Simulated scan of single mutants.
Amino acid sequence: MNRLQQLFKTKTKDILSIYYTAGYPNLADTLTIAEALEKSGADFLEIGFPYSDPVADGPTIQASSKTALDAGMTLPILFEQLADLRKKVNIPILLMGYVNVVLQYGVDEFCKKCKEVGVDGCIIPDLPMYEFEELYQATFERYGLSNIFLVTPQTSDERIRKIDGLSNAFIYLVSSSATTGSNLAVSESSTSYFKRVADMKLKNPIVIGFGISDKASYAAANEYASGAIIGSAFVKALAENGKLTEKIEKFMRQIKP
Rank of each mutant, 00 (worst) to 15 (best):
E158M: 01
R161V: 04
G118S: 06
F140S: 03
Q62P: 00
I123W: 05
E116M: 13
T179V: 11
V107A: 02
F79A: 03
A71Y: 11
K115H: 13
S146L: 01
V174I: 15
L75N: 07
Q81D: 14
P125W: 00
G58C: 01
Y51E: 05
S146R: 01
L85W: 04
P153K: 02
L166C: 11
S52Q: 03
L145M: 11
V151M: 03
E80S: 12
I93L: 10
Q137E: 15
G97P: 09
V55K: 05
F110N: 04
C122N: 13
G118L: 01
D164K: 05
L69M: 15
N168L: 02
D108N: 15
A169K: 00
Y105I: 11
K112Q: 15
S167I: 00
M129I: 15
I77D: 08
V102W: 02
G106N: 04
L150S: 08
Q81T: 11
D70L: 11
L103A: 09
K66R: 15
F132I: 11
L173K: 07
K162S: 13
S64Y: 04
Q137N: 09
K88W: 09
F132A: 03
F79S: 00
D84S: 15
D126I: 03
N90D: 15
R86G: 00
G118V: 09
S175A: 14
P125H: 08
I171Y: 04
E134W: 12
N90F: 11
I61H: 08
Q104K: 14
S175P: 10
L145D: 01
V99N: 11
Y130T: 12
S146Y: 00
M96D: 12
V102G: 05
G121S: 02
E109P: 04
T155V: 07
G121E: 05
I171V: 14
V107T: 00
S64F: 02
G144K: 05
L78C: 07
I124V: 10
V99W: 13
L82N: 03
T180P: 02
V99P: 06
K162F: 14
S64C: 12
G165C: 05
P92I: 06
A169S: 10
N90R: 13
G58V: 02
S65A: 14
Q137P: 02
G121K: 10
